[in-house]
Design a protein around this nucleic acid. Structure first.
Lengths: 357, 357
DNA sequence: CTGAAAGCGCTTACAG
DNA sequence: CTGAAAGCGCTTACAG
C-alpha cells in the first residue's frame, strides 16, 4: 500500500508539473512554510523585504528556502500585485534600421544589464508596421510590462503618445520632438558635441568647414546641425548653405553627401560628419577625389563607434556616453514605476582627437 | 449617497489598478461573461480556441470582448497552465562579442519577429559571468520562460547542459560540440559552404589556396576548415599547414593572420577567409603588401554580411540563410514546447560571386 | 511580530 | 454545448 501511494503521488506530481518524468513538482511557499514551521504569510513577508519578521523566523525561512530549493512563482505574485516584474525595450522603426546601427547594440546591451541587476527581464519588442504597433500598445497597456524603454529616432512617434496616455511609464532614448505630452527621456548633448567638434576644426586653422548632417527629421540630426551653425556664427564665419548636405547615417549616404559638397565647394578644408559611419563614406569619397585627410581636408565624425578606429586615418570624433545613457534610462524608468514624476537627463559628450582632424 | 458611493467605487478601482487617477480597473473575464450573458467558463473556452462552444455563445462573447475592451491577464492564465507564454534569447558569451557580430543582429531580429507572430514575447538574457549564469539557470528552471533559444559560439557550454537537464526546451544556434546530452539545433551547412568556396577558387585556376580559419573552438571554425581540407584533398593538392592560419572573426585578426600567411607563403594565389569581417582585414593586408585582388590573390569570404558589399573589391562570399535559421529555431522550440522530441536542422549555404574571386 | 483568511483572474475537470 | 466549483501560488489587510 505504501509503495502504491508513493507511485500515485509521483504520477500526480508529474501531472501537476505538466511534464513527463524527470520533473518534480516545484516547491511552493507552502512547502517552505511547513519546513520552517511558520505560516505562509510569514514566508511571504521574508520574501518581500523581511519587514515585521523576527530574526529567528527569518532565519528559519531562509534555511527552508535553501533546503527546498524554492523559487518564487512570479505569475502568482504578479496576479496580486498587478505588476509584471518585466520591462520592454521597444523599437518602432519600420525595419532593420537599428540593427545596423552600432550605437543601438550598445544601448540594448546596457539596458539589459542594468535591468538584470534589478532582476528585471527585458522583453525585446519590434513594432514596425501599424498593425504591429496596434497590437503592441494593446499588449503593453494591458499591464504585461511595468514600463517601456523607447527607441525611436524619428519625430512625433504616435506610439510614444499612446503609451504615455495609457499611463504606463515610458522613457525615451534621445530628445523627443513634436510631442505634446510630457515624455521622460535621456539624451546625449548632441548640440554641444557638434560645437566641440567644429571649434576643434576651426582651432586647427580651417575656415571653410562643411557638414554632412544626420536626417533632419531626427533630433540628433537637427541638434548637431544647430551646434555647427552656432560655432560658425560665433566665429563670424558666413552661414553658407552650400557647405551643408543632408545624410542618412549610412556609409553610402555619407559618401553621396560628400560628393555633393565637393562638387559645389571644391575649396572646403574641413568636414564635420554627423556620424562615424557616414564619415567612413566621406573618407572614401575624399580619397577618390584625390584629397588627403587631414592634409587637405580635416574630417570629424560623431559617435566614437568601432568605425572610428577602423577608418584610415582613424577618426577624430565625439564620444557619446552610452553606458551612462542606458543606466540613466533604466533609473528613470524604475523611478517612474515607483511613482516618481517624469524627468529628462542630458549627458555630456566628449571630443576624442585622433588622426583625421 | 449615490454620489458618495460612486466616489468610493472610483477610489477602490484606482486602488485596484495600483495607479492614480486616469487608470480604470481593467475588465476581467467576469465582466465579459456578464455582458455576454454566459458563464465565465464559456468565456474562457472562447478565449482558448472556441471548442465546445455554440456559435451563438461565441458571437456573444466576442461582441462582449470588443465592447468591454477586455484583454486577457496572462499572469492568471500562466498561474494555472504553468506556462509563461514567453521565450528567452540567451547569450552566454563573456561580453559584447555578439553585439559586434552582424550575423547576431539578424538572428535576434528574426527570432523576435518569428515569435511575435505567435504572440510570444522574447526575453533577452545575457549571462557572461558564472554568477549571472547561475542566476539565469535558476530563473529559467523555475519556469519563467517556456523555452530558450541559445546562442553560444563556443564548445561545451555548461549552461546548455544544465538547461537541458532541467527539462526545459532548448534550441541552439549552430552545431553543438562537446555535449553529451541531446540538444536541438539549427545550423547552416558550414562545411559545404567552405567546400563551395574552395572549389570556386580552384575553378578560377588557383592552386596555392590558403585559409584564415575561424576560432577552432567553435563549430563554424572547425567545419569551415574541414570543408577546405576536403576539397584540397579531392583535388589532389597537398595539405600544407603553412597555408592555414587561425583568426578570431575580427577584422584585425583577419589582417594579422593574412600577414602571417604572406610571410610564410609569399606565393599564395588564393585566400579563403572564414568570415567577411576577417576578409576585410585580409584585403587591407593584401593591399599593404602590394598585391592586387583578385589579380594576384583571389579572396573568398563567408557570411554575405554588409561587410561583403562595403569591401573594395566587393567580396565573393558564402551566404548563410539567416531568415531560415531563425524561423527554424523558433519552429523547433515551439515543437518542443508542444511535447515533440528534439531534432536538428541543417540549412544549405550559397556561393555569392562578386569581384574578389 | 504572526497566523488565518480572502482574493488576484483565470482554466479545467465534472456533472449535466 | 454549458455552468458551478475548485484551485493555481502568492500577497495583504485584519485581528491578535
Amino acid at each position: 500500500m505504501t509503495s502504491n501511494n508513493a507511485a500515485s503521488d509521483k504520477a500526480a506530481s508529474d501531472k501537476a508539473a505538466g511534464k513527463g518524468p524527470g520533473r518534480r513538482r516545484r516547491p511552493t511557499i507552502h512547502d517552505v512554510a511547513r519546513e520552517a514551521g511558520v505560516s505562509r504569510g510569514t514566508v511571504s513577508r521574508v520574501l518581500n523585504g523581511g519587514h515585521y519578521v523576527s530574526p529567528a523566523a527569518a532565519d528559519a525561512v531562509n534555511a527552508a528556502i535553501r533546503k527546498t530549493g524554492y523559487v518564487l512563482n512570479r505569475h502568482a505574485r504578479s496576479l496580486i500585485t498587478g505588476r509584471s516584474g518585466s520591462a520592454a525595450f521597444l523599437l518602432t522603426e519600420p525595419q532593420e534600421k537599428f540593427f545596423e546601427d552600432p550605437n543601438f547594440n550598445v544601448l540594448l546591451r546596457g539596458c539589459t544589464q542594468a535591468l538584470a541587476a534589478h532582476d528585471i527581464p527585458l522583453l525585446l519588442m519590434i513594432a514596425g508596421s501599424h498593425e504591429e504597433q496596434r497590437r503592441l500598445v494593446r499588449y503593453v497597456s494591458a499591464g504585461h510590462v511595468d514600463g517601456v524603454l523607447l527607441v525611436s529616432s524619428h519625430t512625433g512617434d504616435p506610439v510614444a503618445e499612446r503609451l504615455v496616455t495609457s499611463g504606463i511609464p515610458v522613457v525615451m532614448c534621445g530628445k523627443p520632438m513634436g510631442h505634446t505630452t510630457r515624455l521622460a527621456h535621456v539624451a546625449a548633448d548632441d548640440r554641444d558635441g557638434a560645437r566641440q567638434m567644429v571649434r576643434h576644426l576651426l582651432a586647427t586653422g580651417r575656415r571653410r568647414v562643411a557638414t554632412v548632417t544626420g536626417p533632419l527629421d531626427t533630433p540628433g540630426g537637427v541638434e548637431r546641425l544647430a551646434g555647427y551653425r552656432e560655432v560658425l556664427a560665433e566665429a563670424g564665419l558666413p552661414a553658407d548653405e552650400t557647405l551643408i548636405a543632408a545624410g542618412d547615417y549610412s556609409r553610402a549616404g555619407g559618401a553621396a553627401a560628400t560628393a555633393e559638397l565637393l562638387a559645389g565647394r571644391p575649396d572646403l578644408d574641413a568636414l564635420f560628419v554627423a556620424s562615424d559611419l557616414m564619415a567612413q563614406g566621406a573618407l572614401a569619397e575624399l580619397a577618390r577625389s584625390g584629397r588627403g585627410v587631414p592634409a587637405d581636408v580635416a574630417v570629424g565624425g560623431f559617435d566614437d563607434s568601432a568605425a572610428a578606429l577602423d577608418s584610415r586615418p582613424q577618426l577624430t570624433t565625439i564620444r557619446q556616453p552610452w553606458d551612462r545613457i542606458s543606466a540613466e534610462m533604466v533609473r528613470l524608468l524604475l523611478d517612474q514605476v515607483g511613482g516618481a514624476d517624469t524627468s529628462a537627463v542630458i549627458l555630456p559628450t566628449d571630443l576624442v582627437v585622433r588622426d583625421s582632424a
